[in-house]
Amino acid sequence: MGTGNAVQEWLRDAAEVFAEHAGELNELDRAIGDGDHGTNMSRGLETALTIPIDEDMSPTDSLKRVGMALVSTVGGASGPLFGTFFLRVGQNWETPSTTSGIATAVRAGLEGVMARGKAVEGDKTMVDALAPAVASLDDSAAKQLPLEMALRLGAQAAHDGAQATRGMLARRGRASYLGERSIGHLDPGAISSALILASAARHIS
């Protein structure tokens, strides 16, 4: 399977994952937000199911299409933030894929999200899943680990980071209006980020 093909399969899988988890993500969002995060993300990523499996379509083009779809179809802050992530990852994607190249691309995505959302690690946002993943990928690149292993470790770091948001005080986004009441709830954006990276780990190698 070519790299472009693998990226398209990743995006297709991500769309299916969000369709499956939309209700769960809505429940998480209902506790600290509008309650529609899962539905919005699922709708935005449905575009991945329409991307044809075509070796001629580059990873950059595939990721750009999904990024633009998220920006245009997902409401609130999630669309621009997740859209920016996919767009920046796509812009920095190198072919053939390597551990160091993927680490660079995902870091660019993280930096785009941080710049757009004005969030840092510890604010109880998607950054709290993406930042540990980037650190893990950087570490794997330094150790010259195979890409498949690096992505698996990065996805686990994102999962752990997302789970850690339960104990955080929200300092950005709608959840920040709740103050202390935001503690004890998982951040849906962080969970979504972890789902995206877990999907990538299953398909990009």
Rank of each mutant, 00 (worst) to 15 (best):
A141R: 03
S62I: 01
F18R: 03
I51Q: 00
E121G: 11
V74Q: 06
H37I: 07
P96N: 03
P96W: 07
L186K: 12
M41Y: 00
G83K: 09
A69K: 05
M1L: 15
T99R: 03
D54Q: 09
A69Q: 03
L25F: 14
F18S: 10
D139V: 01
K118F: 04
T60A: 15
G122S: 07
D61Q: 13
Q163W: 02
Q91M: 12
S62A: 15
P52R: 12
M68W: 12
G38K: 04
G154M: 02
G117W: 01
H159R: 15
N40S: 12
D123L: 08
L195R: 10
A115M: 05
H21N: 08
A105W: 04
G189I: 07
E27R: 14
S140D: 04
S58V: 01
W10Q: 00
M41G: 09
A19N: 08
R43H: 14
G35C: 10
D34E: 14
S42M: 13
A131C: 14
E27K: 14
L151P: 02
H21C: 05
G184L: 12
T84D: 03
G79V: 06
T39P: 06
G167I: 09
L130Y: 13
K124A: 10
A155I: 03
A129G: 08
A129P: 07
K124F: 13
V113A: 01
L147M: 05
S205W: 04
R202P: 04
A105M: 05
T104L: 01
M114F: 02
G76K: 03
L81K: 04
G76N: 03
G184F: 12
S100Y: 06
T3W: 14
G173C: 00
R43A: 14
A115R: 01
K124E: 06
W93K: 01
E27T: 12
D13R: 09
M126T: 04
E46V: 09
N5R: 12
S78R: 03
L137G: 07
M114S: 11
I32T: 05
L197Y: 00
H37P: 08
L153M: 14
A103C: 11
T50N: 14
R172P: 02
L28N: 10
A198R: 10
L153N: 15
E148I: 04
G189P: 09
L145I: 11
L137W: 12
K64C: 05
T165V: 12
G23D: 12
L11F: 10
T95D: 11
Q8L: 06
L169D: 03
R116H: 04
E121K: 14
R202F: 02
L63G: 05
N26L: 03
A162T: 07
L130C: 08
K143C: 08
T60R: 13
F18M: 10
H185D: 04
A135V: 10
I51A: 00
A133G: 08
A141N: 05
H21D: 12
A6T: 01
